[in-house]
Simulated assay, not measured.
Amino acid sequence: MQLYNKLSAKEREQLIDEAGEERLTISFYTYAKIGNPQLFRNHLFVAWDQMQVLGRIYVAHEGINAQLSVPAKGFNAFKNFLDQIYFLENVRLNIAIEQYNKSFLKLKVKVRDKIVADGLNDDTFDVRNKGVHVDADQFNELIEDPNTVLVDMRNHYESEIGHFKNAVTPDVDTFRESLDIIENDLKDHKEDKNLVMYCTGGIRCEKASAYYKHKGFKNVFQLNGGIIEYTRQVNEKGLENKFLGKNFVFDERRAEKISDEVIAKCHQCGKACDTHVNCANDACHLLFIQCDECAQKMDDCCSDHCKEIIQLPYEEQKKLRAGKHNSNKIFKKGRSPVLKYKV
């Protein structure tokens, strides 16, 4: 029984091109008690591999967090499969605003301690006691209330290219960092202000809202379905769009355009730009914002050093990387002394 990928990303990309069929990029999550995450993980992999589903999925005792690419013609079969799992029946599926057939090139289903790394001890508070879910219309009304504090629960590199008007955007690298910072900044307004939160698809706010209620915040609200669902409702209902810029996404697209505003700048020259790239030097791989002119000038690299490295023969580059463990530090988003214009 096949439980892991056997095709490389390049091989899968070729198959997608040859098939010439449309695919849908979808995300969903749910908190549920899963007794045996490894068994559930294997069940999902076997079924979804047969359906040609690709993506990144995290499974834990507390639930599932999934970002997927599904063949459009197989969407109904995929939905029927989910509906046969009692805690996934009629789960909200966030369908991407901008579709790209190669948003994912492998199927990765991983067992984790948490479906989102929040650093919280869930035994210390009731994770079911969540904030009030609001739709796009209610959200627009709430954030215009002078009694509201609107907080972006995402990381700095996400909010840098797009966020809601007047939102507090913590300068953090991880979700877990933002929790204590926000609580401390708003400690004097636990009873007299509306705490309204949003994130990409809603999952971070699910846990954060319960945590803040546990911490004494009286009026806690969260944008149901996050920015993705908000955009869908705005487009369908003709509502005013209060989001500025792009919504960062965690697949090959890197972002979805929500409005025409460009609120970020190239990290190398300072020109208005909101295009994220990864440094072409595989030993660096830094995620940063780069305009077309700098990309051409720097050969898609973040620094002169990396530019020199990629000029070497590939085998020499491999030798330089040999024996060196690439920790998560090489994936620091937009944090590097080589970048002149950064948050």
Rank of each mutant, 00 (worst) to 15 (best):
E206R: 03
K318Q: 15
A210G: 11
M1C: 05
L3I: 14
D192N: 14
D274Q: 02
L142V: 06
W48Y: 08
C279E: 01
K340S: 05
S303Y: 07
V46F: 14
H133F: 15
K213P: 00
Y31K: 10
T169D: 09
S103V: 05
W48I: 07
A60V: 09
L93T: 08
I227H: 06
E183G: 11
L223I: 13
C294T: 07
R321W: 04
E229K: 12
E62M: 11
L93Q: 01
F81H: 13
K106N: 00
T275Y: 12
Q290A: 04
S8N: 03
H189C: 07
D304V: 12
D192A: 08
Q233M: 15
H214E: 13
H163K: 07
H276L: 15
L15D: 13
V196G: 00
H156A: 09
G334Q: 09
I26S: 04
G63I: 02
L54T: 07
A208G: 03
I203M: 06
S69H: 03
Y31E: 04
D304C: 08
A60Y: 01
T169R: 08
L195K: 01
K271C: 13
I57D: 02
K213V: 08
E98A: 05
S209I: 12
S69E: 02
K33T: 12
F217G: 03
